[in-house]
Design a protein around this nucleic acid. Structure first.
Ligand code: FES
Ligand code: FES
Lengths: 143, 143
DNA sequence: AGATTAAAAGACATTTTTATCCTTTTTATG
DNA sequence: CATAAAAAGGATAAAAATGTCTTTTAATCT
């Protein structure tokens, strides 16, 4: 479905959504325990997301990672695209090519609808959608 | 979704379903081109399936891999279980634990239904279901 | 300005997945 | 029984995913 790295990245971003903003930045050191991701690895993933403009960060004292207002409107697919690439999640169940309705594989009629629904969820669900009304919800960060 | 190995394995089994039976066994040498899988690697995967009783094989002259009547009633999940393990496909979208309706992650209500539907397709679709009425269908073997 | 802090960057290590090659064992058949 | 054909098995290798460590850069605070 999604790589571990993408799962990690999503959990990291959700943590930032719940616990950070422009003037409350979060260090990786303080979050990796809660989201159950190795510190250095989470740092790397967040750096990657930041470099691609999906999340925000500043260096130095009082620095850290955080989500701007804009960042919160990002979709889950924006995260997955950076970490896994779109190709991986859109590939055909039996092949490596993109799932293709014009040249459907033998399994397509059985699972194609499901697949595209899943992709639509990733594309249409924003960080904001997931956290609205919630604070410090530990169930966001399963092992 | 599924590992490449599982995709390979499924395509291999489908080829056998279309082109083999008890007295028309198929050598890996003759099928790897059609299903687009490296010869030695496909051999390994089929051996693994055979060892677990999901497909059949005999050695020696006029030997090869084939599907018995019984083998054809196997589900796709039987294949995936051998190659990837059940855990991988059933794991939560955000974690490594099994997707758990009792302790759903924040994404579960958005994708959980899809996931279980996909799993049900794997569990309830037999090889026979996929090939009935069809012969030598190249669209079974996407790249 | 200088010291300190934290991310950025990139080198390095490990593990898993994917893939190849070579030898051994089994078996049908002449 | 000899032979050849085919899977089985093991050793190895290449690539990708996962994970760690060290150095560099930038921001902040004294
Ligand atoms: S073409 Fe194979 S799943 Fe859509
Ligand atoms: S618990 Fe996470 S997808 Fe079901």
């Amino acid at each position: 479905m999604l790589s571990n790295s993408s799962k990690y990245a999503i959990k990291g971003v959700l943590y930032l959504a719940l616990n950070s903003d422009e003037d409350h930045k979060v260090m990786v050191r303080d979050m990796h325990g809660v989201v159950h991701v190795p510190e250095a690895y989470l740092a790397k993933l967040l750096q990657e997301l930041s470099r691609h403009g999906v999340i925000s960060s500043t260096r130095g004292p009082r620095g850290g990672f955080f989500l701007s207002k804009e960042d919160r409107k990002r979709s889950l697919m924006d995260i997955v695209k950076v970490i896994d690439g779109e190709k991986r999640v859109k590939s055909c169940v039996l092949g490596v090519k993109d799932c293709d309705t014009d040249q459907p594989c033998v399994l397509h009629k059985l699972v194609g609808a499901n697949k595209s629904k899943f992709i639509k969820v990733l594309e249409n669900t924003t960080i904001l959608d997931l956290i609205e009304g919630k604070r410090d919800v530990e169930e966001f960060f399963p092992v």
